[in-house]
């Protein structure tokens, strides 16, 4: 269980892992996440599932190195085992035939977006996808995204690949061109905030998948709480997707920084060790 089958670097900081876990491979649905722990003193942290092969019994995870835990995960090699892996958690994406879906993925957020666009496409929708990153090196999973999209637009902040501009510029172009029935956005919180402001302007129903801090991931700790429409919600059991127009993104951004000092210190100690 939990054996790393393969490992592929998309960039210095972004790594794709295929992990053996037949039960989760079979039971996961688009939008679900898992909780991982690396080593006996490791912390529990969530990652949205980027794909699965129920026949081979594997799931795909795409991880960006941001701190100690992601560094430890990426340090594992094929043949190594992830200490603990549990899931699938969270509510799956509400997939149905609705018309045209605009999907927007920022940075490593493209990975969890993949199973969702695949499902929307298979449900008979027209899917237009915008993927965005700071530069060319950070654009990931372009071919896979293309496979399940009727149209794929690539945006980079510096114009080193695709079109120059933010994800919202690409999205707005589509919105002005054709009728969009639903939008889904996954990426850094700040990107989702602005994508959500854009679609709100055009009154397009939008789901955002949140990457809150979690401990247990099963509803117990409340670390992942967010305000949605002024109400308290737990990302782990009531999300991770919510009506983006109702999410208090500023509060969410503030809460994501809740352990910044502690994380920074831990990262310094960890980097000295290795």
């Amino acid at each position: 269980m939990n054996k790393i089958i393969s490992k592929e670097y998309f960039s210095d900081k972004v790594v794709k892992l295929v992990v053996e876990n037949p039960l989760i491979a079979r039971s996961r649905k688009p939008g679900n996440f898992v909780i991982l722990r690396i080593g006996e003193k490791g912390e529990r942290f969530p990652l949205t599932i980027a794909g699965a092969d129920p026949v081979k019994g594997t799931i795909t995870l795409v991880v960006q190195i941001v701190g100690v835990s992601s560094s430890k995960l990426v340090a594992l090699e094929p043949g190594d085992h992830i200490t603990d892996l549990v899931g699938p958690l969270g509510k799956p994406t509400d997939i149905r035939k609705i018309g045209t879906v605009l999907a927007a993925g920022g940075g490593v957020g493209v990975a969890p977006l993949l199973p969702i666009i695949e499902a929307f496409k298979k449900a008979g929708n027209r899917v237009v996808t915008v993927i965005a990153a700071r530069n060319k090196d950070l654009i990931i999973l372009e071919d896979e995204a293309k496979k399940w999209s009727d149209e794929l637009i690539i945006m980079t902040d510096d114009g080193s690949y695709g079109r120059k501009g933010l994800v919202t510029a690409g999205m707005e172009e589509i919105i002005l061109r054709e009728k969009i029935d639903e939008c889904i956005v996954i990426g850094p919180a700040i990107m989702m905030k602005f994508a959500s402001m854009l679609t709100k302007k055009y009154n397009i129903p939008t789901q955002a998948s949140l990457n809150s801090i979690m401990v247990d991931g099963t509803g117990m700790c409340g670390a992942c709480r967010v305000s949605v429409g002024g109400k308290l919600k737990f990302t782990c059991v009531e999300g991770p997707e919510f009506d983006a127009h109702q999410i208090d993104f500023d509060e969410m951004l503030m809460r994501l920084g809740g352990y910044k000092e502690e994380e920074k210190k831990a990262n310094e100690i960890y980097s000295q060790k290795i």
């Binding site: 509803g219 117990m220 700790c221 409340g222 305000s227 308290l232 737990f234 059991v237």
Partner: peptide, 23 residues
Amino acid sequence: GAGLPRFMDIPGENYNGIMSSNE
């Protein structure tokens, strides 16, 4: 088990440094 911790739904309760006893 008991699952979801209750909060009081008062202003500012989602600030960092405020957490459930469970957490």
